[in-house]
């Protein structure tokens, strides 16, 4: 298996946003999420390079629907060990690959801190 520890394989250097000092999710994590979406949502003939980090996932953009959102929820649990329980706080993170990666990073960092 390429990534034997799916909940932490992407941890490593985290680039810093030069504008605000905000921590950005690892580009490797963003690419992995794109690969997972392509695989799970069966986007044939699409590659990670076809999806922009800030492209809208639902409204316009990739045009995902509520059924696809459920697949993302299942993907977050099976690949990253993240259970999406508080929907209202999670909803804003489902806007783009970048926000989804930030969500994964925040939740896994929190889990690691509590462990």
């Amino acid at each position: 298996m390429l990534f034997p520890t799916p909940h932490s394989w992407w941890r490593g250097a985290r680039p810093i946003d030069a504008n605000g000092g905000k921590t950005l999710a690892d580009p490797i994590l963003r690419r992995r999420i794109k690969e997972l979406l392509i695989e799970r949502l069966k986007f044939e003939d699409m590659t990670p390079d076809d999806i922009g980090d800030d492209d809208s996932l639902f409204d316009g953009g990739l045009g995902l629907d509520s059924i696809d959102a459920l697949e993302i929820v299942v993907m977050l649990e099976s690949e990253f060990g993240i259970k999406v329980k508080n929907e209202s706080s999670a909803r804003e993170y489902f806007r783009s690959i970048a926000s989804l990666a930030d969500f994964v990073e925040a939740r896994t960092s929190k889990a690691q801190t509590q462990a």
């Binding site: 509520s66 059924i67 959102a69 459920l70 697949e71 929820v73 299942v74 999670a90």
Partner: peptide
């Protein structure tokens, strides 16, 4: 139950 989000359940 596998997942629920946005008022939709799987």
């Amino acid at each position: 139950r596998e997942a629920d989000f946005g008022g939709v359940f799987r």
